[in-house]
């Protein structure tokens, strides 16, 4: 359990934020921490919110993955860039 600073960008916002993530956080927690800085502030919340997903280098990380495991697996350094976006439902809808 330790705080780890990341560069968190919510897709659609113009600016990424400095976000303190805990190594015990799941990707769902990380998504929430990043999204809460943009959604409802500069990015509108959709009427039927689809939930969020986290991406590292354009690859979605499963929601239950623990942040510390991602850091260890990719040997990440502080301020690593993560993207968070509204969950893409195109594949579910078809």
């Amino acid at each position: 359990m330790a705080l780890f600073p990341i560069t968190g960008r919510f897709v659609g916002d113009f600016i990424p934020h400095l976000v303190a993530v805990d190594t015990d956080d799941t990707m769902a927690d990380v998504a929430e921490k990043v999204a809460t800085l943009s959604v409802g502030h500069r990015v509108p919340m959709p009427t039927d919110p689809p939930g969020y997903e986290v991406l590292l280098d354009d690859v979605v990380i499963p929601e239950s993955t623990v942040f510390g495991a991602v850091v260890a697996e990719h040997d990440l350094m502080p301020l690593q860039w993560f993207d968070v976006r509204f969950r893409e439902r195109a594949s579910v809808a078809t």
């Binding site: 934020h17 400095l18 976000v19 502030h41």
Partner: peptide, 8 residues
């Protein structure tokens, strides 16, 4: 409409 953290 006010900040709570720093931008990168």
């Amino acid at each position: 409409t006010l900040p709570v953290t720093l931008p990168s």
